[in-house]
């Protein structure tokens, strides 16, 4: 009964701000304006599969996968270190990881703009040390850097939250039974952290796949990623039908990829779904 009482607002919220917009997106995607009236049409969806747009989607996918992989590579050890610290220091570290997120995402991305530029902070320091300049602004590398920087906490935190719940006596038992640190990690720690790792992967992959601000600012507008393409349809071209079709395709892609990831896990604990 208590539960029901609490459900109401959420239900209303979801209906208004998730379900209804979703239906609007589907409606726009599946209709086209012919002679002043919108009627059913698959033209918008068909257009998504034209080579030029598939190329944009492929490029977005590539950057998102690279960013997610790098986040995992950096985030997993960070979570391990975090989970192994004594309580007080751990809290400080967690705060340090979360701290940048208190600042506006856009402001932080703008900051990279002046850090990375030709006569920017990083190159001034490199020049002072007699090292060659780093010119990565407005390249794929800068976009990936921006994504990894912005989304890394989303990888670290879920992994950390499962790692630190692992019963330490299991690790001691493995060591008592003669397992090397590597075997302990492989057979005891890693399998138990999988749920968190998958949550992290999904939570990084989704924003990386849909971003349009990072690619515009750090990519110098030379990258039409799928996020930019969708934004363009709504704000410049007013082709809501095609914009919705692209969004729908993107949602389907994310659901399929998320589903595959989750299925590969087998169990159902600590995850996002």
């Amino acid at each position: 009964m208590k539960k029901k009482l609490l459900n109401g607002p959420y239900l209303a919220w979801m209906l208004l701000f998730a379900i209804a917009p979703l239906f609007i997106v589907v409606w726009y995607a599946l209709t086209a304006e012919i002679g002043g009236e919108r009627s059913f049409s698959l033209a918008n969806l068909q257009r998504v599969f034209e080579p030029i747009y598939l190329r944009v989607i492929w490029h977005s996918l590539k950057l998102a996968v690279i960013s997610t992989f790098l986040c995992f590579l950096l985030g997993y050890p960070a979570a391990l270190i975090l989970a192994s610290r004594p309580f007080r220091r751990r809290t400080i570290l967690v705060v340090l990881i979360v701290l940048p997120m208190w600042m506006n995402f856009l402001a932080r991305t703008y900051a990279w703009l002046s850090l990375l530029e030709k006569n920017g902070v990083i190159n001034s320091v490199l020049a002072f040390l007699g090292l060659p300049a780093l010119n990565i602004l407005y390249t794929d590398a800068a976009v990936v850097l921006g994504m990894v920087y912005n989304f890394l906490p989303f990888m670290i935190l879920p992994i950390y939250s499962v790692l630190y719940k692992i019963d330490h006596s299991q690790i001691e038992a493995a060591q008592d039974l003669g397992a090397t640190p590597l075997i302990t990690f492989q057979r005891v720690i890693f399998p138990q952290s999988l749920a968190g790792a998958l949550s992290g992967v999904v939570m990084v992959f989704m924003p990386a796949m849909t971003t349009f601000v990072i690619s515009r600012l750090l990519g110098g507008g030379q990258y039409t990623l799928i996020g930019n393409l969708i934004e363009q349809q709504f704000l410049t071209t007013y082709d809501w039908g095609f914009g919705s079709a692209l969004s729908l395709f993107l949602m389907a892609l994310l659901i399929v990829m998320g589903g595959l990831l989750m299925r590969s896990r087998g169990d159902n604990e600590g995850g996002l779904w």
Binding site: I52, Y53, V56, H59, Y223, L229, T236, Y238
Partner: peptide, 17 residues
């Protein structure tokens, strides 16, 4: 003509990927 301009722009921006 906006869809035509939009398409040109998208083609320009994705020409080298």
């Amino acid at each position: 003509m906006l869809p035509v301009y939009d398409r040109i722009w998208t083609e320009v921006k994705s020409a080298y990927h």
